[in-house]
């Protein structure tokens, strides 16, 4: 048995990134949703610090740090996400990449796709966005393409539905 974990191997194949970016509107959407969550969190911490009597001064410092982290999250996360998130649907497979600190790449063959859902929350509608979720017979396998612009999403759903309808078998 060779130990392929050791030593540089330059000839191994690598996965290329999927072809398409998500909608640029996604930056605004992610910013607003992060802002809502973080503001609630920071205000909650601040109120708790002010209300609880006799809380020592360094707790205030923690609240300040939390606020700084929240600002960094709101400013940086959407931009990093926009650079990372990508998707591609070919005639044979669905391929996505997502994450901002970590990375997650998902691939499923279209022949194994069971359902195609699209979802549009209230906030997403403000930004003209929609998400598509493609599920397979595995609970570990759903693939979500976040934040496409609504027209593209409708096209992709129509195309995926057409392809999967033509596929036979029970996809397990």
């Amino acid at each position: 048995m060779s130990d392929v974990g050791a030593g540089p191997i330059v000839r191994e194949p690598v996965l290329r990134a999927p072809a398409n970016r998500v909608s640029p509107q996604a930056i605004g959407f992610w910013t607003v949703s992060a802002l809502i969550g973080d503001v609630v969190l920071v205000i909650g911490a601040l109120v708790a610090w002010l209300v609880i009597p006799g809380a020592p001064g360094w707790v205030g410092l923690l609240v300040l740090l939390l606020a700084v982290a929240a600002v960094a999250h709101v400013v940086l996360m959407p931009r990093i996400r926009y650079r990372v998130h990508r998707w591609e649907v070919t005639d044979t497979a669905v391929h996505t990449r997502e994450g901002w600190i970590g990375r997650e790449t998902r691939i499923a063959p279209i022949s194994r796709v069971q359902t195609v859902d699209s979802r549009q929350g209230a906030l997403m509608r403000l930004f003209g966005l929609a998400s598509i979720t493609v599920t397979t017979a595995s609970a570990a396998g759903p693939i979500t393409v976040d934040c496409l612009d609504a027209d593209t999403a409708a096209h992709v759903v129509a195309r995926l539905t057409a392809i999967t309808a033509a596929t036979e078998g029970d996809a397990t």
Binding site: G102, E104, A108, A137, T172
Partner: peptide
């Protein structure tokens, strides 16, 4: 019936990944 390659921040720094084969079984 599909693959997931996921990398945490630490794994990315040292070039490792978790490979998940998804299946109905």
């Amino acid at each position: 019936i599909g693959w997931v390659v996921s990398q945490s921040w630490w794994q990315r720094r040292i070039g490792l990944a978790d490979l998940t084969a998804t299946t109905a079984a």
